[in-house]
Amino acid sequence: MARYRGPKAKIARRFNEPIFGPSKAVAKKAYPPGQHGRSRRRKQSEYAIQLMEKQKAKYTYGVLEKQFANIFKKASRKSGVTGEILLQMLEARLDNTVFRLGIAPTRRAARQLVLHKHITVNGEIVNVPSVSLRIGDVVAVRERSKSLEAVTDSLATNGAKRFPWLEFDASELAGKVVSVPQRDDIPENINEQLIVELYSK
């Protein structure tokens, strides 16, 4: 399966945000990467700002360009605020839900758990990170994987994360999707309206 495999620190510095998780590089070098990082002109065009916001969302959720465009098309066909629906669809991905439940420390780690068949959905093993979950779906760690060091360390370090649209049973290492996330409940620093404006051109 295709995914971004390049340097994480450079991407984080480009957006000046630790979008792949805690990063010392962002704190130490609070300017864009490259030899012209410090002297790069600050004024950006409207298109550049919109593009940056789309790229930030794409890298944050670990989605490739074509996948992101397809998700936006689906979101634009639904009734409601397109930008908010876009984020809700990205949040509904299986890898993101595993990360939100605290079973994995990052989305990359969550993706790996899914790919290696450590995660079940409604009792069935699912190894496709992009699967879209619905209300009522139960995401759990496979029985034989519950003692996995990566899982126990993540829960011990970060604890089970609390989000209004998810319920988590720590004893069973299982979470349930109870509702659709509202925009105020999604902590990512993304201006989705700029993404809508970009795709509307």
Rank of each mutant, 00 (worst) to 15 (best):
residue 47 Y to G: 03
residue 48 A to S: 08
residue 48 A to C: 01
residue 49 I to M: 13
residue 49 I to N: 09
residue 49 I to Y: 05
residue 49 I to A: 10
residue 52 M to N: 06
residue 52 M to W: 10
residue 52 M to Q: 11
residue 54 K to E: 09
residue 55 Q to A: 10
residue 55 Q to P: 07
residue 55 Q to G: 09
residue 60 T to Q: 06
residue 60 T to C: 08
residue 61 Y to E: 13
residue 62 G to C: 05
residue 63 V to M: 11
residue 64 L to I: 09
residue 65 E to G: 08
residue 66 K to S: 15
residue 68 F to I: 08
residue 69 A to S: 11
residue 70 N to M: 12
residue 70 N to R: 04
residue 72 F to D: 10
residue 72 F to V: 12
residue 73 K to H: 11
residue 74 K to Y: 10
residue 74 K to V: 15
residue 75 A to M: 12
residue 76 S to C: 13
residue 76 S to P: 08
residue 78 K to N: 10
residue 78 K to F: 02
residue 79 S to C: 11
residue 81 V to H: 05
residue 81 V to L: 12
residue 82 T to L: 12
residue 83 G to A: 10
residue 83 G to V: 10
residue 84 E to R: 02
residue 85 I to Q: 02
residue 86 L to E: 05
residue 87 L to G: 06
residue 88 Q to G: 08
residue 89 M to D: 12
residue 89 M to W: 00
residue 91 E to I: 07
residue 91 E to V: 09
residue 92 A to F: 00
residue 93 R to Q: 13
residue 93 R to I: 11
residue 93 R to V: 13
residue 93 R to N: 13
residue 93 R to K: 07
residue 94 L to W: 03
residue 96 N to I: 09
residue 96 N to L: 04
residue 98 V to C: 10
residue 98 V to M: 09
residue 98 V to W: 05
residue 98 V to S: 03
residue 100 R to M: 08
residue 101 L to E: 05
residue 101 L to Y: 03
residue 102 G to Q: 02
residue 103 I to H: 01
residue 103 I to L: 12
residue 103 I to G: 00
residue 107 R to A: 10
residue 107 R to G: 06
residue 108 R to Q: 14
residue 108 R to G: 14
residue 109 A to N: 14
residue 109 A to W: 02
residue 109 A to L: 15
residue 110 A to D: 02
residue 111 R to N: 12
residue 111 R to A: 15
residue 112 Q to H: 09
residue 113 L to W: 00
residue 114 V to A: 07
residue 115 L to K: 02
residue 115 L to W: 00
residue 116 H to N: 15
residue 116 H to T: 15
residue 116 H to D: 14
residue 117 K to T: 12
residue 118 H to P: 01
residue 118 H to W: 00
residue 121 V to K: 02
residue 121 V to L: 11
residue 123 G to A: 10
residue 125 I to H: 03
residue 126 V to R: 05
residue 127 N to M: 05
residue 130 S to L: 03
residue 132 S to H: 02
residue 132 S to L: 12
residue 132 S to Q: 14
residue 132 S to T: 12
residue 132 S to E: 15
residue 134 R to F: 01
residue 134 R to E: 15
residue 135 I to G: 06
residue 135 I to L: 05
